[in-house]
């Protein structure tokens, strides 16, 4: 979906989002409230510049509009795969963006992520996956890698992976799989404007993804293992 179409569907009460070099920034009206919007478009790769631009927008929102809710619109092919970005420390730039989102939450900003097109690996981990809750449109392509590449790396035939992917959401791309694993809170099928309004009202700051993954059966071990670590009866030797 084009970001312009998305924005007018999500925010029928109006928005002033503008795009510059695949970076989206602006505000929108939701339920009589002004919301800050940041995001990316054009399946752009996330390099140091666009990571920094998104961080700047979040810091400005925290400075000038305390507690203003934030919506992150995600469309990225992942981190930029260039020597220059690595030389400049792209992992630090992406961590900086992730920390800005996290601190916004702690400062009382509600943060919602929406994957409206693509979300891959590093581009996703410091955007939608840092929100209070992340949502997706049904056709969103969310993945680390496709099954052909996975077949090459794991040396498991692709046909077998396709078969396994029917019963285990861990392997194959797709919004439905991320939903079952708790990585997405929900998939928005219709009436997107109501969905975003409701998401902003109901967001919680705690990370509930491993619980969701267990409840939905897509990631059964993450939550019990973390709980087991908390429950270990440790007797100090000193």
């Amino acid at each position: 979906m084009k970001w312009q179409t998305l924005a007018s569907t999500l925010f029928p009460d109006g928005h002033d989002i503008v795009e510059k070099d695949n970076f989206l920034r602006g505000t929108a009206q939701v339920g009589g409230q002004t919301i800050a919007i940041i995001g990316t478009t054009g399946h752009t790769s996330i390099g140091v510049e666009i990571a920094l631009a998104q961080a700047e927008a979040i810091l400005a929102t925290m400075r000038d509009f305390p507690a203003r809710p934030l919506v992150i619109l995600v469309d990225t092919q992942g981190q930029r795969l260039r020597h220059r970005d690595e030389m400049l420390g792209i992992n630090r730039y992406m961590a900086h963006l992730g920390k800005c989102i996290d601190l916004a939450r702690r400062h009382g900003h509600r943060v919602i992520g929406l994957v409206y097109d693509q979300a891959l690996s590093g581009g996703f981990i410091t955007s939608g996956l840092m929100a209070d809750a992340c949502y997706a449109l049904p056709d969103a392509e969310i993945r680390v890698m496709g099954l052909p590449a996975m077949a090459r790396i794991t040396k498991v035939p692709e046909e077998r992976l396709i078969d396994l992917a029917k019963s285990n959401p861990v392997f194959a791309p797709g919004a439905e799989n991320y939903l079952n694993m708790g990585g997405l809170e929900a998939i928005w099928h219709e009436d997107l404007a109501s969905c975003v309004a409701l998401a902003l009202q109901t967001s919680v700051s705690a990370d509930l993804r491993s619980q969701r993954g267990m409840e939905r059966g897509g990631r059964k071990m993450a939550y019990p293992v973390a709980q087991a670590v908390l429950g270990v009866n440790h007797v100090s030797k000193t």
């Binding site: 996703f124 861990v170 694993m181």
Partner: peptide, 8 residues
């Protein structure tokens, strides 16, 4: 090998 779970 467990790509989606690893990412989350």
């Amino acid at each position: 090998h467990e790509a989606n779970a690893g990412l989350i």
